[in-house]
């Protein structure tokens, strides 16, 4: 155990380039990924970015409608996420190599939008009576929500970086092995999204046991991804893949569970004009699906792309 920990620590310190004995030993002859495989991985990340953006589009449209669009800036996430969906679709159908400047621009803009949005939401909370109180964390502009559009941008941006690798080379991002970078960042993102779901489900007092799923499955998925990020490459990791696939499915099932939640409010679906907003947000859970897809892309890269 001690040696494993030391090895993991070393990999971190060395920027994932540590001497990984397992990888060195067993998989040196693994093939360098083909052009197609690089594009495939990039397209997976485009799909992840698009899925998250779709969640953000509907969620921010609904929540900002509830907030009456009283500030023009409240249109920003809607425009940005729509653009992010657009370029993600473009990336998905694009079989070519090399980053696309428009996609890159949109993804970067999405990333920045999330940061600015977070600042806006924090400002909104601070100016409310009570400031950083649970009341405002629960019911004011959600501090964690704008980060989702950043995650869409991030996943798309990573996709572009992966796609930017020359055919026949090992895909790298910022000088680091792409699979490890995507795995690590996706793991971190899953934890952030878990925090948001956790806050809102805590607000709902975890009244239904199913509400525990998004605070247990994604952190486990994050742990698996971090382990993959620092662990040996070229391993198939069927269990991790299965877990991520389940997490992706949970994001979809979440929509159904939230739909049930809407029906549990007074007047049910017949009173949809109230309950779509008062009940649990239908579009929120697929954020997990998007991130799980990115995690699967990372694992695929790690299998394909031995980094030593």
């Amino acid at each position: 155990m001690a040696t494993t920990r030391e090895r993991l620590k070393a990999s971190f310190l060395l920027g994932f380039r540590g001497e990984a004995p397992v990888a060195r030993g067993g998989y040196e002859t693994a093939p360098i990924p083909s052009k197609t495989e690089i594009v495939t991985a990039a397209r997976r990340l485009n799909r992840a970015a698009g899925t998250i953006a779709a969640s953000v589009l509907v969620d921010s449209a609904m929540e900002h409608y509830r907030g009456d669009f009283r500030n023009k800036a409240m249109w920003t996430p809607i425009v940005t996420s729509a653009l992010s969906i657009g370029v993600s679709v473009h990336g998905h159908v694009d079989g070519r190599h090399g980053a696309h400047p428009l996609r890159d621009t949109v993804y970067v803009a999405a990333g920045l939008t999330g940061l600015v949005g977070t600042a806006f939401h924090i400002y909104n909370v601070t100016k409310k009576v009570g400031g950083f109180s649970w009341q405002n964390l629960f019911y004011s502009a959600p501090i964690g929500a704008p980060a989702a559009i950043s995650l869409s941008g991030l996943m798309g941006f990573l996709g572009e970086r992966v796609r930017d690798n020359k055919p026949g080379t090992r895909p790298m991002v910022a000088g680091l092995p792409a699979g490890r970078v995507v795995a690590a960042l996706t793991g971190a993102s899953l934890l952030g999204t878990t925090a948001e779901a956790g806050l809102l489900h805590f607000r709902g007092a975890f009244h239904n046991p199913a509400m525990l799923l998004p605070v247990t499955m994604p952190p486990a998925a994050a742990a698996l991804l971090v382990y993959a990020a620092v662990g040996p490459a070229g391993v198939a990791r069927p269990a991790s893949r299965g877990w991520l696939a389940a997490t992706a499915a949970m994001g979809i099932a979440g929509v159904a569970l939230h739909a049930y939640g809407v029906s549990r409010n007074m007047g049910g679906w017949r009173n949809w004009r109230q309950n779509l907003f008062a009940g649990p947000p239908l579009p929120a859970p697929p954020s997990f699906t998007g991130l799980a897809l990115a995690g699967l892309a990372a694992l695929a890269l790690l299998v394909d792309d031995k980094d030593d």
Partner: peptide, 17 residues
């Protein structure tokens, strides 16, 4: 209630304000 409740006595929706 600020969230739904499924108690032994029955199912209650949360407050509709």
């Amino acid at each position: 209630l600020s969230a739904p409740l499924s108690g032994p006595e029955g199912k209650s929706p949360p407050c509709a304000y």
